[in-house]
Design a protein around this nucleic acid. Sequence first.
DNA 1: AACATTAGCAACCGCCGAACA
DNA 2: GTGTTCGGCGGTTGCTAATGT
Length: 237
Amino acid sequence: MGRAPCCDKTKVKRGPWSPEEDTTLKNYVEKYGTGGNWITFPQKAGLKRCGKSCRLRWLNYLRPDIKHGGFTHEEDNIILTLYHNIGSRWSIIASHLPGRTDNDVKNYWNTKLKKKLLTASTTSPSTSNNNNLRTTSAEDSDFYNMLMPFNYDPFLIDQEMMVDQIPIPEIGDHQLINGFNFGFGLMSQEAHDVVSSTTDRPLINRDNLIEFQEINPIFDYSKYSGLMALENISYVP
DNA sequence: AACATTAGCAACCGCCGAACA
DNA sequence: GTGTTCGGCGGTTGCTAATGT
């Protein structure tokens, strides 16, 4: 037997909110607050709505600090960067975008960003004509593409890391791969040792490269000593 | 002009974990 | 320790407007 529903769906209004309902909800919250209990809120506020519906309406639409309107390129970058780091944890991503809600970010991702990303990823880096970023070599692009089927995303190494501790770019070269400006670099053993001993930057080390060599012998990983994790990505619109 | 398709977005659903009795 | 309640979350649905045929 499943959980009891939070309210009797036959006795509450559903669907789009009317301006009158919005006003009632807004006025009540501004005057008395939410009372710490959304389930009993509708009765207290005089709304014939489910408590969850009231909560959603307030958080996603009526809150005074909500930002309406299109997303900026800067916001695009933040969403894409965080999505690569932590996946579809929309509430965390939204918390880094003042005035945006998880629902907004989720909708924006599903309707626009995902498509942009697909378009970008199907565009060969070597044919990109973007002048701001130099394109990567075909070999580097192949290298990254090789990682993806193994689900070996450098970002995932530190998935537990707090999102506000994502390493800030310092060194490395920026290269345009699949529509992203990657700040990673294949390193000498010496450089790899220095970086791994002085930062907590996620790294793919030589052992991992050897693993990849075993899994897919077509690409020659043996000439690399390490791969520095992605430092920064920015979406190329 | 009429209909079909697509895009955008608000709202709902159901699961999960924290808090509490 | 166990069961219940509620808030929060991500996935999904469904409505409306915009666009295409």
